[in-house]
Write a protein that binds this DNA or RNA. Sequence first.
DNA 1: GATTTTCCGTTGCGTGTGCAACGAGCGCAG
DNA 2: CTGCGCTCGTTGCACACGCAACGGAAAATC
Lengths: 151, 151
Amino acid sequence: MGIADDAVEIRAHGWRTLAALHALIENALERVLQGEHGLSVVEYTVLDALARQDGRHMRMRRLARAAALSNSAATRLVTRLEDRGLLTRVLCADDRRGIYTELAPAGLELLERARPTHDRVLREALAEAGGTPELAPLVGALRGLEPRPLP
Amino acid sequence: MGIADDAVEIRAHGWRTLAALHALIENALERVLQGEHGLSVVEYTVLDALARQDGRHMRMRRLARAAALSNSAATRLVTRLEDRGLLTRVLCADDRRGIYTELAPAGLELLERARPTHDRVLREALAEAGGTPELAPLVGALRGLEPRPLP
DNA sequence: GATTTTCCGTTGCGTGTGCAACGAGCGCAG
DNA sequence: CTGCGCTCGTTGCACACGCAACGGAAAATC
């Protein structure tokens, strides 16, 4: 049992903890967002990512990366949201291979209606995880991550 | 923009970072474990959890919780692994509703063959994430999580 | 300028998943 | 002992996903 073995075990433990916390939060979000707004977590993530983007548009490839999805999954996800009128496909002018997905007004509206729910559930899930001895340290570490590192 | 809004944004940012790192690691593990050992990440997780358990057995419900799966998914996952001879179903003596899933020798063997791969890919994925400014802080925090808190 | 290579988004296919409904077995109140 | 509520694991169903293959468009190579 050397130092190297310890490092391996620390990484494995960190990964198990990360996965457990991720599953806890995602399941909670999935349940409530689906029930109250008809949105899955990935769908919310995509709408949110689009809203944060300048011009509210994004290329498919970027969108797939942002949501950690395959190309095919991104295509169908965008199709679903487009059918619901939450976003629109816009062809690229300069690169005719590319397709922009642009957030529609209805999409922005739904997003802003769902955001308080999202934030509330996230806060509750983190609080619950903070009460679990196994997860508490990671929850604490998450608080230290600043969106914009202070100068 | 008050302190409360900052807290909300910090939580949201923490969640996005957590999700991104989780996806990065899981995709890397999935690709390699599937390619080299025919195991998905969930399957590896279940075998690993069983191996860590005293007596190498576990009830379905516990197993489902450990892998963050629904009951139905656990049932089918166990069925798949049982069909491959990696574990066996054993009926509970005291509670005839319950079913133990016990790690078979072939399962333990496959697990120990896959473990080095798992650890290597995990190390590489964390190293790669450590090079990303957005993910590096969380990777660093993960190192601070001790499997057994020192006295 | 023509040809090859690479990239982008879409589609057919197989598969793993969650939800809801179900039967079987335990435990408690009466 | 009998009925009722609850837990446990399984199954039908719909659905979202990844992979591989495809056509179209830009980039690279000659």
